[in-house]
Amino acid sequence: MLAYITAVAIVFCIYALLTLSLNLHFGFTGLINFGHVGFFAIGAYAAALCSLNGMPYVVGFTAAAALAALAAWPLGLLALRLREDYLAIVTLAFSEIVRVVITAEEWLTNGVQGLPGIPRPFASLGIGGNAELAYLALVVTAVVLAILLIRHLVRSPFGRLIQAIRDDEVAVKALGKNPAGVKVRVFMIGAAIAGIAGALYAHYMNYIVPDQFLPLVTFYVWMAMILGGAGSISGSLVGAGVLIGILEGSRVVRDLLPNVMQVEMASLRLALVGLLLVLFVLYRPNGLMVKRDES
């Protein structure tokens, strides 16, 4: 039981990182990003390839954050020129391009066969509770650092500027401020956090394939952010917790209903998530943590 709870907690922390980074993009800055899973995938493969080639974990995590941020740079530039709906389409296309490239470049990523045998930190502690708890401590530390970083950003003059851009970009320009560089930096910072989440995911799973980075992951992260509340750091954590509760709860129900096929349960899970989304939009449009300016 402890092993299961630890595993769920680790997955929750990874989704919390993804939700926090997406909230920085949309909740605090108003940048619509439907391709968040692309940064997640870049981070996962960067860290995995570094570790499989004998590099230290620190190098892998640094590469994950740096490459994800670098990939976000041109998207940040596009955000300066595109309306919200077009930016959403471009970011969605970006995530699919990342997945197609990962699948096609077999010489580097092993294509659809994936990358097995990714080493996990603290493996020397042995298989079992100690290693899992140590890894949980690592992902919790990553979440805490991400929270502190985002809290510092949103409470600084930079944070007040990005929230002003979210609320009324025209007024910001009228005051003589230039939103261009700010949007690019926000895109890169959020992508770097998502890249770290990908690195943690790759090392925890020990095996990654392109099909683990479908647009469905982005949908789940958006769902978590909406449930918790856009523009709320605590909302990101609450939303990720509710999402993981739904996903894991449906697996428990599946065990209690042996006659229900796995495909049917997956469809039921998506229907439940969609129903919750509709209900929250109708009755709690600001999410569970309704204080939008909370940080």
Score class of each variant (00 low, 15 high):
Tyr4Met: 12
Val11Gly: 04
Phe12Lys: 00
Leu17Cys: 06
Leu20Ala: 09
Gly27Ser: 12
Gly27Trp: 00
Phe28Asn: 00
Phe34Glu: 10
Gly35Cys: 02
Phe40Tyr: 01
Ala41Glu: 00
Ala47His: 03
Ala48His: 00
Cys50Asp: 11
Asn53Cys: 15
Gly54Val: 13
Tyr57Arg: 10
Val58Lys: 05
Val58Thr: 13
Phe61Ala: 05
Ala65Phe: 12
Ala69Ile: 03
Leu70Thr: 14
Ala71His: 06
Pro74Asp: 09
Pro74Ala: 06
Leu80His: 05
Arg81Asn: 02
Ile89Phe: 10
Phe94Arg: 08
Ser95Asp: 06
Glu96Trp: 05
Glu96Asp: 09
Val98Trp: 10
Arg99Gln: 09
Val100His: 08
Glu106Thr: 11
Asn110Asp: 10
Gly117Val: 07
Ile118Leu: 05
Leu125Lys: 11
Gly126Ile: 07
Tyr135Gly: 06
Leu136Arg: 00
Leu136Tyr: 03
Thr141Met: 15
Val143Asp: 04
Val144Leu: 15
Ala146Ser: 14
Arg151Ala: 10
His152Pro: 02
Leu153Asp: 05
Pro157Tyr: 05
Phe158His: 14
Gly159Phe: 12
Ile162His: 04
Ile165Val: 15
Arg166Thr: 07
Lys177His: 02
Asn178Thr: 15
Ala191Ile: 04
Ala192Cys: 05
Ala194Trp: 07
Ile196Asp: 02
Ala197Arg: 00
Ala202Thr: 03
Val209Arg: 13
Asp211Ser: 15
Gln212Val: 14
Gln212Ser: 15
Pro215Glu: 12
Trp222Ala: 07
Gly228Ala: 15
Gly228Arg: 01
Gly228Gln: 04
Ile233Val: 06
Ala240Ile: 03
Val242Met: 15
Leu243Ala: 02
Ile244Val: 14
Gly245His: 01
Val252Ser: 04
Val260Gly: 11
Gln262Thr: 11
Met265Leu: 11
Ala266Lys: 06
Leu270Phe: 09
Leu279Val: 11
Val281Lys: 08
Lys291Leu: 14
Lys291Trp: 10
